[in-house]
């Protein structure tokens, strides 16, 4: 779920989270953006919003996993660290689907 700045919003993108001000929901989750909505969002001074779809990742998946292995290299024999690593690995892999 990438956070996209207002200048980069395009018609057809779908809101991944409801857009709200205070307690009032302005646009519901799943709203498909059109030119008008995008202009209004800009007018409200909102800087960026979450849209559906995979986020752009700074490094390729193999590199992200290699860095993860590096980070955990000292502690894999310690209690609970395997479980933590496994969960982070699953999370990282989920970012590339």
């Amino acid at each position: 779920m990438p956070k996209v700045s207002v200048e980069d919003l395009k018609p057809g993108m779908k809101l991944a989270k409801p857009l709200s001000r205070g307690n009032m929901v302005l646009l519901g989750e799943g709203t498909v953006l059109n030119e008008t909505w995008i202009a209004r969002i800009g007018d409200m001074g909102i800087e960026a919003i979450f849209v559906e779809g995979p986020s752009e990742q700074p490094v390729p998946k193999e590199e992200a996993i290699r860095q993860l292995d590096e980070r955990f290299r000292n502690v894999l024999s310690q209690p609970y660290m395997n479980r933590i690593k496994k969960m982070v690995k699953e999370h990282i892999e989920g970012l590339y689907v």
Binding site: E70, R71, F72, R73, N74, V75, K85, V88
Partner: peptide, 14 residues
């Protein structure tokens, strides 16, 4: 573990 930011080293403590 997630690798967010830089705390001054590169390895996760136990």
């Amino acid at each position: 573990a997630k690798g967010v930011g830089y705390p001054g080293d590169l390895v996760v403590p136990a």
